[in-house]
Write a protein that binds this DNA or RNA. Structure first.
Lengths: 111, 111
DNA sequence: AAACAATGTTAGGTTTCCTTACACGGTTGT
DNA sequence: ACAACCGTGTAAGGAAACCTAACATTGTTT
């Protein structure tokens, strides 16, 4: 594993994109983008001055949201889904961590 | 090969970052960032309104430039290096392309 | 019918960015 | 030595981009 790669892979999560660019990338209106934030579907960072900054992951998320809304799903339901997914993901992570600890004590030694 | 990965890998090249964020990411002043552009070391896109937009690759490039300048290298020399590197890279690409064409005619068939 | 959902639009204000120009101390070339 | 250049700071004035709040509209629930 190369160290500089730790950066590259985090490009996707870095919050560096303005709403104007997000609008270009997604085809959504600024109104829509802000509204989905109001409905707690998306969580941009803010500059000290108060401007929103999004990540590429946020942009992908927005596209998914827009698709669901086009399919008639309401923001409230989308939010419920997100919460469900997050719980599931957290449980996975927890299981993995426990497994890691078990391996550390009883698993194959590395040295 | 998964299609959605074609996107992920291009995050690095997409010009989506404002100069203010670049300043934060690199620690350089806006003056420096613009000056390196004036010296043809960096080539941001522009929005229709004229604002600069950088990629993560540009940000990395800027850090390299700043390091060289700290080492006393002049922008002119850095530019020469860049041109040399680009020529080398293009030659590589050309060689690879020729090789690809040879393979297509005489190499192992895929079907 | 009243309430809510999703979106557009407008208004007024703030932040961020732009170019141009001058200053200045250090380096280079003649 | 002195003119020219290098890299950077800073200031001014203006334009672009962003912000919130509010009201309007058209559907959809309740």
């Amino acid at each position: 594993m190369v160290l500089s790669l730790a950066n590259e892979s985090s490009y996707k999560e870095k919050k560096v994109i303005t709403i104007g660019i997000v609008k270009e990338l997604t085809g959504l209106s600024e109104r829509q983008i802000r509204y989905y934030e109001e409905r707690k579907l998306i969580f941009p960072d803010r500059t000290p001055g108060g401007s929103r900054r999004y990540s590429f992951a946020d942009v992908e998320q927005l596209v998914e949201i827009a698709n669901k809304i086009e399919d008639g799903v309401q923001t409230y339901e989308i939010r419920q889904e997100m919460i469900r997914d997050k719980k599931h993901k957290d449980a996975e992570a927890h299981k993995k961590m426990i497994q890691g600890q078990l391996n550390a004590r009883f698993g194959v030694r590395k040295h």
